[in-house]
Amino acid sequence: MITKQIFPLKYIFNEIKISLLIVTLIGLVVDILPVFFPDFLPDIPISIATTLGIAISILISFKVNQSYDRWWEARKVWGEIVNDSRTLVLQLKMYVEPDDPVIKSMAYRQIAWCYSLGQSLRKIDPFKNLGGLISDSELEHLQSQKNVPLGILNFQTDSIKKQFDEGKLDGFSRLQLEGTLARLTASMGKCERIKNTVFPTTYRKGLHLAIYLFVIFLAMSEPLRLVVVLEVFILVIISMVFFFLEKAAFRLQDPFENQPTDTPVTSIARTIDINLRQLLGETDLPKPIESDDFYIM
């Protein structure tokens, strides 16, 4: 998640450098062709470019709103994960005997689940950061699982069932804990839905093409027949706004792609880690993840 209001120019340039290079080439071609072919390119009324520019602005606005809705939904889901993770440990402390080791084992599994879910959504190693949180036998079993976070939740379910079978949990307590696990499972499903639902690529490609058409019509319009360097500079500056907003919307629409615009799932998982250890009465707590750049993951 981007945390600073001012982006580094390098980041902005890297996002749109190819598009700006194409715009520069378009400007040069439109200026050079009339030298060799005077009647090849007609003068285009500026109204065509302005009309297309207004249409593009509306489309980009719609795309940004739709993309932000997906990003914000992901952030809300992880807010629910924070709440339910805390609730799970608080419920265990209420329903289970204070000296029962199942409280710590399930709390640590919940921490592991949060780390693993975020890493799985980003398609990176789901076992990273799990050391010391899950037993070796459970880790070995998870190696054969395609969905590691789901496997961890399965261990949580087995622990609750075992506590109930041994008479350490009554029926009401079991139902409350099952409800919390059900909400965590639902949150995982929501994240997977966002991750696996592809935003229509034709919409982005059509919008991208429309911006290039806008640049061409603008370059061919009479008011912009200026000195080559000045004309290209104006085309680059105007198109840069469109391309950057379009690229920003493209990044926001996928909040689990290991990009600076991601939902900060690793940072949220670390917060959960700290909170749950604190509920267990531990004092040696991990440090919150801090941003060394303009974003936090």
Rank of each mutant, 00 (worst) to 15 (best):
I44T: 10
Y68V: 14
P260F: 05
L209F: 11
L235V: 05
F256H: 01
D69F: 04
L121P: 04
D262H: 06
L285H: 06
K123M: 12
W71T: 09
L33T: 10
F250R: 04
T157C: 00
P288D: 08
L92I: 04
A248P: 00
I46N: 02
F127K: 14
L245F: 10
I18H: 14
K161Q: 15
S221M: 10
R109V: 07
L28M: 10
F233S: 02
T266Y: 07
G118L: 08
K190S: 00
Q5W: 06
G79V: 10
I237E: 07
R70W: 08
L59Q: 08
I18Q: 12
D69T: 04
V82C: 01
Q5I: 09
I58G: 07
Q176E: 01
L21F: 07
M240T: 10
Q253S: 10
G53E: 02
V64Q: 13
F242P: 01
A186P: 01
N83Y: 13
I160V: 14
T180L: 07
N258C: 03
Y95V: 13
V30M: 00
W113C: 14
V29W: 02
I134L: 12
F256Q: 09
Y212N: 03
F127W: 07
C114A: 15
L59V: 11
Y11V: 01
N196R: 15
A49I: 01
